[in-house]
Amino acid sequence: MRKSIASYLTLTLTICILLFVSFSSDETIDLSKYSTAGLELYYTVSQDQSIKDNALASNEVNKPISPILGKSFVGFKEALAFKESRGDYFIVNTLGYLGKYQFGAGTLKLIGIHNPSLFLKDPELQEKAFVANTQRNKWILRRDIKNFVGRKLNGILITESGILAAAHLAGAGSVKNYLRSYGIDNFEDSYGTTIEYYMKKFSGYDTSSITANKKAKAI
């Protein structure tokens, strides 16, 4: 019995000494010796399979993706539409101008549209109307485009897109007066926007895809 008690005491003392030595040692454990390579690992959280790997790697995941329109014709008409109405197809301003490109009823008649109410409800027709009106303005201003593009008036470089944007604002006749007066006759609309402002703001877009057409119609 005494031998058993002595054995237990000896074992306990040995364990205490080993623990003391272990905790008092300055030696650090080298974790690089341990690896999970080759082991089959199991996780309680699964990856969402609907999320693409490249999306997970990107910090732009939550940002909307939009096309870069640049100085293309689409870029031209969208920039102009944003200035006119912030791109709203169904808006009517305080002067009665309609839709995304803010057409007046008189201009709509010139390109074959006689029902402003239906026009306002039809985005596709509004896009056709913009193209038709731009074609018509390009025909009316064809000589002025030839004579003035590349020149500077009041420090502004004259470009075809600037001329066509200004014609959308003020009408082709007012743009002719501006150019042929060498920038003196600067039309201003009811909101204080001038031909010169549009000439500068919408300068340098590629409108070469628009063909000059005296009889252009949206319908």
Rank of each mutant, 00 (worst) to 15 (best):
K3E: 10
T10H: 09
L13E: 02
C16H: 06
L19Y: 07
F23S: 13
E27N: 11
D30Q: 13
T36L: 00
S46K: 13
D48E: 12
I51T: 11
I51F: 06
D53R: 07
S58K: 01
E60C: 01
V61A: 11
I65C: 03
S66C: 08
S66A: 10
P67R: 09
L69E: 09
G75M: 12
K77N: 11
F82Y: 15
K83H: 14
K83Y: 13
E84V: 12
R86A: 14
R86I: 04
F103E: 05
G104S: 15
T107K: 04
T107Q: 05
L108F: 04
K109A: 11
L110W: 05
G112C: 05
I113V: 13
H114F: 08
N115S: 09
S117H: 14
L118I: 10
F119M: 06
K121L: 08
P123L: 06
Q126F: 07
K128E: 03
F130T: 00
V131E: 14
V131W: 02
A132N: 07
A132L: 10
N133K: 08
L141Q: 05
K146W: 11
F148T: 07
G150V: 10
R151G: 10
K152E: 10
L153P: 14
L157R: 12
L157K: 14
I158C: 02
T159H: 02
E160A: 10
G162S: 01
L164H: 04
A167K: 04
A167W: 01
H168E: 07
G171S: 01
A172E: 05
K176V: 13
S181Y: 00
G183S: 05
D185M: 03
F187Y: 14
S190I: 00
I195V: 14
I195R: 03
E196M: 02
M199Y: 01
F202N: 03
D206M: 11
T211I: 14
A212W: 01
A212N: 06
N213G: 01
A216L: 08
K217L: 15
